[in-house]
Design a protein around this nucleic acid. Sequence first.
RNA 1: GUGAGUGUAGCUCAGCUGGUAGAGCGCUGGAUUGUGGCUCCAGUGGCCGAGGGUUCGACCCCCUCCACUCACCCCA
Length: 428
Amino acid sequence: MPPAPTLVKGMRDLLPPETHWFQAVEAAARELFARYGYREIRTPILERTELFARTVGEETDIVGKEMYSFLDRDQTSLTLRPEATAAVARAYVEHRLWEQPGWTRLYYLGPMFRRERPQQGRYRQFSQIGAELLGGDAPQMDAEMLVMLARLLDRLGLSGWTLSLNSLGCAEDRPRFERALREALLPIAPRLCGDCRRRAETNPLRVLDCKRPEDQPLIAQLPTTLDLLDPPCREHFEQVKQLLERAGVPYQLQPRLVRGLDYYTRTAFEFVHGALGAQNALLGGGRYDLLAERLGAPKGAGAGIGFALGEDRLVSAWRAGLAPSDPPPAAEIYLAPLGEAALAPALELAEQLRQAGLSVAAGDARWSAKKHLSTASRQAARWAVLIGEQEIQARQATVKTLANGEQSAVAWPQLAEFFATASGAARA
RNA sequence: GUGAGUGUAGCUCAGCUGGUAGAGCGCUGGAUUGUGGCUCCAGUGGCCGAGGGUUCGACCCCCUCCACUCACCCCA
């Protein structure tokens, strides 16, 4: 026999109870986003390669070496989305959403794909939850989103996050930044690490983001994007910071925060967390004033701001001990049909209980009572319901409370009510 | 793409300077033929990642390959 097929590199199976954590993150996010007026958008997982190449940037790592791209049968190059902002912007333009009243608030969640070398907190398929606020460039939008994100992380039970904040300047600032940096780099570049020497040529902004300790003293002397902002961008950033302070959201100015997608302008941010290992960015995003415009939105209508949260990383932080609660059991009631004769009536009862809103999981009618009880307690059910010959005769069920071993006979019609009151009593 | 580490039972791992494998957990059964969790007993379980080499003899040493993990890079 040939070897059984296994997981593709960088992909993983999420098994219960881990899936519970993903559901919990998603539910919390959906609920919170709704309070801020966001509604869900679902874009395809497959897009034209061109979309990402033109927006994320030809020279970025994502486009340059991490995309899952292939030729469709009609020779169109398609790509498994490596991020969702470009796709949302595409949809925003394609469906002329700016014609709707007010700013457009959209959120999304789902899998993204990047062909990188896997490591802790980084997979080739990973889930992101993100939101986009489109249709303007008011600093108020930036602040609204950052406040919402702070609330989200608090609500998810994560303490100890840090918000790093920077402004990258507008499109007009960029060439100035790069010229200034290149100039400043000329004398010191030879003393920097190999990567930085390369970046000094290709993408000078990136040098600011270098993490090598030995390079830090030199890099500290370089001008930052904040030093070079033009007056309107400086004013915009000031207002964002003020609004954050008014809202009581703490941030750390991080003048060397540079993000890896080309469409970012002005406000850029990251929420990082210490429980995550080397890949400590839990969530990142920024403003993109020209993204949608480049895809065909009218001047001014395409500006916006967005973020993406790494769901896998959030769950990993939870698993590192920050989880707000235990995952629930498979079912609160375990049903034990004792013998084939008990099967049909037992299953009927199970259906009645489910219709009353209870969760019920049954075992195999051929199992021994001992195996049933053992299974029930190991599945963490709260009650075991035994239906055997005696019970059928009496039209009753034997209900055992697993936690304390108490057992009672309950008439079939009273079963649902029995569990309802027992649940209520436990909560009180 | 680069570097390092690790591959032994379903899972987590032990295995001394080379003498052809162990534990815990799990699973099955029993002590309790309709009563779980705790305990005790018994059983089940492995081409020691793959291929080659050295050796009388290799889980152990050498080479090649593969996989996984972590880190760099980059990012969520």
